[in-house]
Structures are given as structure tokens and as C-alpha cells.
């Protein structure tokens, strides 16, 4: 069970959180302007890397805030925690 540092509450048990999938997949500005393929890519295609992955987490059993995390999918190490809407930090 991971220990996840909520930016608002501090380090808490993984069980308090809800996973939200890949981060930085924004709802398109104008969906009607997208081709079927572009829209399908938004709906159905997500990265599945081995290694660092930017993903969304929600502290659902506490402050209910969404935030982003860079987590290594091999080691489960959390390499960065950063607010929604800010750019993905560069991980050395």
C-alpha cells in the first residue's frame, strides 16, 4: 500500500485515494471540430508506460481534491506530486 502525499493533507494511505488515469488528457476545447479518429483517440487511447507515468489521483476519502502524480509503474515510487493545471515536471 503506497503512501501518497496529498498536497493538502500530507502523506496518507493509498486506500484514501481514488485513481484517475493518465494526467494531461484534457477534455477537448471543441469536440465537434475533431475528426472521429481524433475523438476516439481522446476517448479510448491512453499511454501505458513501463516507468514514470503522469497520472491523476483524487483524495476521495478526505479533502476530495484532484492532483497529479508522477509514479514509476515498475517500482511504484512517487517521483513528483503537482497541482492540476500545471505543467508536468521534468524528472531527472
Amino acid at each position: 500500500m503506497m503512501l501518497i502525499s496529498c498536497p493538502w493533507c500530507g502523506p496518507r494511505e493509498e486506500a484514501e485515494f481514488h485513481y484517475g488515469g493518465q494526467a494531461h488528457v484534457s477534455y477537448p476545447e471543441d469536440p465537434s471540430a475533431l475528426s472521429d479518429e481524433e475523438w476516439a483517440r481522446f476517448l479510448f487511447y491512453r499511454d501505458n508506460p513501463k516507468g514514470p507515468f503522469a497520472e491523476r489521483w483524487n483524495h476521495s476519502a478526505s479533502c476530495r481534491r484532484w492532483f497529479n502524480v508522477i509514479r514509476d509503474t515498475v517500482t511504484y515510487e512517487i517521483l513528483a506530486v503537482y497541482p492540476v493545471g500545471t505543467p508536468k515536471p521534468v524528472i531527472a
Binding site: H18, S26, Y27, N58, R64, R65, W66, V84, G85
Partner: peptide, 13 residues
């Protein structure tokens, strides 16, 4: 509720 909060926090703050 989570659906609404998600959009409010992440897409339409």
C-alpha cells in the same frame, strides 16, 4: 458527485 467535482477542479476551474 465525484463526476461534478472532477470537472469543476480539473477542466473548468
Amino acid at each position: 458527485l465525484e463526476w461534478m467535482e472532477d470537472f469543476l477542479q480539473t477542466e473548468w476551474p
